[in-house]
Amino acid sequence: MTRVKRLPGIAARALVVGLFVIIAGLPVYWMVNTALSTDAELYRTGQDWWLHLERLVDIPGTLSTVPILKWMTNSAVIAAGTMTLSLILSVLAAYALSRFKFHGKGVVAFMLFATQMLPEALIVVPLFAIFVSLGLLNELYGLVLANTAFTMPVAVFILKAAIDKIPHETEEAARIDGCPRSSQLTMIILPLILPSIAAAAVINFFDGWNEFLFANTFIADAEKWPASVGLVSFIGQYGTPLATVMAAAVLFTIPAVVFFLVVQRQIVSGLTAGAVKG
């Protein structure tokens, strides 16, 4: 009887879920659909509602007409640099924040949190002035340096939350067994938080991968553009077919989505832990 009673509830839930699938999925579907349309369809007859999957074979050919792979390589270099630098700094900082008492701990924690509310559009103005005088404009490593200031705190939150979960007795036991204090981070803690490090790595990598504002402001040379800036350069420019632009955007999107889905759980815990405990 309860089963019968709950049936309307199940139907309502299915309806709501279905609605959300349409809301979330429609623009994504339309992106792929556009990538598989021709210019004549897009601007004259209107693109078809269904996917022309048979045109997938033409995609590599169309993509070779734009430097998307070159740009994505630049994105990958920026992302890898940002990730590496963020991880080195954040592992040390997270360990200190989780395990030690020291003067100014609250101030450091607040500073890290504050970077998350600092608008990049504000920082980009003075940073531009600083980069001009340091000769960092138009350099990929300049971007790495700028990105890391904003991505590293997120990694600190995630890693600190992970280290907080390890009982202090683990290190006590290791010390009794002769592991010196100075190697406890590398010998004891790091192996235990590998999953969180992987998550922080993915998040920092794709922060660098997706970043647009700094890159758009600091990199003038089209050869050095990351894909985010390269793709935006197509807006309002009619030389390149829209389908090609969309296909390039899809290619740029795929790695970000795949990796996000893999580490979504850690992203959630990192974000909330960062906001609660700073």
Binding site: V17, F20, V21, A24, G25, P27, V28, W30, M31, T34, L42, Y43, G46, Q47, W209, N210, F212, A227, S228, L231, V232, F234, I235, L242, V245, M246, A249, V250, F252, T253, A256, V257, F260, L261, Q264
Partner: peptide, 28 residues
């Protein structure tokens, strides 16, 4: 389904912007 609903957040902002510019296109 959860993965599917996560798509908008997971994709690069720039890609989302390109799609929406086209979705909002006045004629097509």
């Amino acid at each position: 389904l959860r993965g599917l609903l996560t798509f908008p957040y997971a994709m690069p902002t720039i890609a989302a912007v390109l799609v929406f510019i086209w979705i909002y296109n006045p004629s097509s």
